[in-house]
Design a protein around this nucleic acid. Structure first.
Length: 426
RNA sequence: GGAAGAGUGGCAGAGUGGUUGAAUGCACCAGUCUUGAAAACUGGCAAGGGUUCACGCCCUUCGUGGGUUCAAAUCCCACCUCUUCCGCCA
């Protein structure tokens, strides 16, 4: 959502920014809708003012015991006009909102140009991918050989894109989640939250999954409940409709939850293995800041995610997404990509976005400085810290021991796995 | 799921058809007093929007959406949320 007054003031600037995402000019259409709406609004308000004034007069006359029939008839005659105008104005208002809610966020200035993911820019790299002399096994081969990863039986009950983990791998999944959460709460200063996994339409509108991306969400058929595709939805909506004291910001949340996605648009993509599932666990980070602090917070948050991969000693790189690859609600996004040996490439394991005031406007989430009258929209940020399924894949493949088909337990996970050194088939 | 009650400004809490956007208290802000603080006193204090160069004027909002009326926080309907009781249940 956008500040209409800002668009009125600087239409070209908005169009220029949207053009970076490959969008045609939008502002003239927006402004036309806006103008029509305001015209109707002004007209309507004049009628309402007249009605209010006359009604007050009637009140006065009546309480004085007089006869107000004449004025009452007069006001009565305004009724139809008001009703008609109200109807028109509502439609006009809806039109503006619908138009605006379908347009992506303004990009930060330092987002690199480019139409697609091939133009993303690497900004940091950590660790060195192991050189392997044989063709590396992928996590599916490793997991099935261990007898701890079962796609067939998952498919039997749930269809494709589900998995059953057993024994050591199930425990490692849990260990990763615990390790991430503990690191966030004890080292990064985030507050752990256990939020709802089912949310109402309004919440999804606030974090821009609706109305545009309904196709990728699972929905209850008889109630207004949707399964969250990420706990960004639950965590960010905590501040919806709130006015927060600036001194209480930033707020930094983290949650460990399952995430549910239809993956409607990715048929045939990553069909093998755990990379892309309908249901997966993720530890999420969400920050809510004052407008002047979000850029700083974005770097901090990305650093928190990177820290986890460093502690796991997994090779990764950090990229900044180019204009064409930056998501709908984000003004700037860093992706962390972890080395996946079987694919001999880096794959996304975290995405950290600064949404600026985009979600805040949709959620009506504001803040106020002490002693000041004016409110401002907060800035919201979200990032994975990290996707558990993909982290498990990365650990399995990077810590695989071809000598016995086992998987070494990363140092930082050992305490979460009862001191276990290595997962071996039983 | 059934029954009863309730949803008003940051909080508490008045208000059952007519200058009520809303008494009062607390909190908060500014000032007076004080060496300073407290107390006391004085004043201020909802959000969003339209219009205006501006002062200002106006509109909307008392859980949400409809309705009745010249006029709704106040009456009617539906929904949501909360509380209590009953039922069921991890």
């Amino acid at each position: 959502m956008f500040d209409l007054r800002a668009i009125r003031k600087n239409p070209e600037q908005f169009d220029k920014n949207w053009a970076r995402r490959g969008l045609s000019a939008q502002s003239s259409e927006i402004l036309a809708l806006d103008e029509a709406n305001r015209g109707l609004q002004t007209e309507l308000q004049e009628l309402l003012a007249a009605r209010n004034e006359k009604s007050k007069e009637i009140g006065k006359i009546k309480s004085a015991g007089g006869d107000a029939d004449a004025i009452m008839a007069e006001v009565s005659s305004l009724k139809d006009k008001i009703a008609k105008l109200e109807e028109q104005q509502k439609i006009a208002d809806e039109a503006v909102k619908t138009k605006l809610s379908g347009i992506p966020n303004i990009l930060a200035e330092d987002v690199p140009d480019g139409p697609d993911e091939d133009h993303n820019v690497e900004i940091r790299k950590y660790g060195t991918p192991k050189s392997l002399n044989s063709i590396p096994k992928d996590h599916v081969d490793i997991g099935e050989a261990l007898g701890m990863m079962d796609f067939a039986n998952a498919a039997k009950m749930s269809g494709s894109r589900f998995v059953i983990l057993n024994a050591g791998l199930a425990r490692m999944e849990r260990a990763l989640a615990q390790f991430f959460l503990d690191t966030h709460t004890s080292e990064h200063g985030l507050t752990e939250v256990s939020p709802p996994l089912l949310v109402k339409s309004d919440a999804l509108y606030g974090t821009n999954q609706l109305p545009k991306f309904a196709d990728d969400l699972f929905k209850s058929s008889d109630t207004d409940h949707w399964l969250i595709p990420t706990s960004e939805v639950s965590l960010t909506n905590i501040v919806a409709e709130e006015i927060i004291d600036e001194e209480d910001l930033p707020r930094r949340y983290t949650a460990f939850t399952p995430c549910f996605r239809k993956e409607a648009g990715s048929a045939g993509k990553d069909t093998r293995g755990m990379i892309r599932q309908h249901q997966f666990y993720k530890v999420e980070m969400v920050s809510v800041t004052t407008p002047d602090k979000s850029i700083e917070e974005h770097e901090r948050m990305t650093g928190c995610a990177e820290n986890l991969l460093k502690k796991l000693e997994l090779p990764f790189r950090t990229i900044v997404l180019c204009a064409g690859d930056t998501g709908f609600g984000a003004s700037k996004t860093y992706d962390l990509e972890v080395w996946v040996p079987s694919q001999e490439t880096y794959r996304e394991i975290s995405s950290c976005s600064n949404c600026w005031d985009f979600q805040a406007r949709r959620m009506n989430a504001r803040c106020r400085a002490k002693g000041e009258k004016d409110t401002k929209f907060v800035h919201t940020l979200n990032g994975s810290g990290l996707a558990i399924g993909r982290a498990l894949v990365a650990v399995m493949e990077n810590y695989y021991d071809p000598a016995d088909g086992g998987v070494f337990v990363p140092e930082v996970l050992k305490s979460y796995m009862g001191g276990l050194e290595k997962i071996l088939s039983c």
